[in-house]
Design a protein around this nucleic acid. Structure first.
Length: 288
DNA sequence: CCCCAGGTCGTCA
DNA sequence: TGACGACATGGG
């Protein structure tokens, strides 16, 4: 891999395991918009970023050298996937899923954004989740103008204190509005301390996240994986249940035993395994 | 009218 | 613990 900077653009040559389309559409994030097959626009913190693949080269427009750290963190660029893939390639099905999802990269997303996003995700579908989150950003996020267009950062907690159920009504989040308010309140009061959670041992972090109403076991797992990059955490949703039932004979198996089995199979990288399996199941579906 | 969507909550045994 | 229905909203 080779990283260069030119005219406020970041150029990457010869990077393994970074396919922007798969990375942005594998379900871990909700705010990257596809401009074309090979080009996406998104917002990282308060920066608008346009990503484009040109031949074998990936270009991130709008990332200057001073944002290198932000970029490296978000794309978890230090991680080489070869070793992880070797470890989790333990059966034919996941080998197929890994091949199919080659280029998926685990992002490291903002903690507050991930908490709110996955509260919204519960019992909801992806297009609507995206819509709601975008609306939320437009209402309460800082406006950023980029190439003549307006974009919005994810709202900051400080700007959400004292908002009410009525303020959230335009989002049409339904009963989840109370969960969002609870998250804002507990985080603002420090009852759930995000900075401390970042350094907590995984189970302790999960316990703390689950103090928030609307954050159950699965949503907490998503937060642990997609924001804190706890690779060992494997969120199990309806799609994963399908895979586990049809490919791994884990139908009607108790949750606890399922976790034990997953641990045996993919150990410290169960979360990465989940990303491939989830993506494969959703994209390839029955034809697999 | 039904069922489903990256589930969680409250309740009751 | 574990099972079970309710829950807003929108799409098929």
């Amino acid at each position: 891999m080779e990283i260069k900077y030119k005219d406020n653009n970041l150029i990457i040559d010869n990077i393994n395991n970074l396919d922007i389309k798969k990375t942005f559409e594998c379900g871990q994030c909700f705010r990257w918009e596809g401009v074309s097959e090979s080009e996406y626009i998104g917002v990282i913190q308060n920066k608008v970023v346009r990503a484009k693949k040109e031949g074998q080269t990936l270009v991130f427009y709008g990332i200057g050298k001073e944002e290198e750290g932000l970029f490296r963190e978000y794309f978890n660029i230090k991680e080489e996937y070869e070793e992880i893939i070797k470890v989790i390639s333990s059966d034919d099905h996941i080998i197929k899923a890994i091949e199919y999802g080659k280029g998926i990269r685990l992002l490291k997303q903002d903690l507050f954004e991930t908490i709110i996003s996955f509260i919204i995700s519960a019992n909801n579908n992806i297009p609507r989740i995206k819509k709601i989150i975008n609306e939320f950003c437009m209402l309460y996020g800082d406006k950023i103008t980029y190439e003549g267009k307006d974009y919005f950062a994810f709202p900051r907690v400080e700007n959400l204190i004292n908002i009410t159920k009525e303020d959230l009504a335009p989002l049409k989040v339904g009963y989840r509005d109370m969960y969002i308010l609870d998250a804002i309140e507990k985080i603002a009061l420090g009852e759930v301390d995000l900075e401390k959670i970042k350094d907590m041992e995984t189970n302790k972090a999960k316990e703390n996240l689950m103090k928030i109403k609307g954050v159950g076991s699965k949503v907490a797992d998503c937060i642990l994986l997609f924001s804190l990059n706890r690779y060992e955490v494997c969120p199990i949703d309806v799609w994963m249940k399908k895979v586990l039932a049809s490919r791994y004979n884990l139908e009607n198996v108790k949750e606890k035993d399922t976790i034990i089995e997953i641990n045996k199979k993919w150990g410290n990288y169960a979360g990465i395994a989940q990303q491939y399996l989830f993506y494969f199941e959703r994209e390839a579906g029955e034809q697999a």
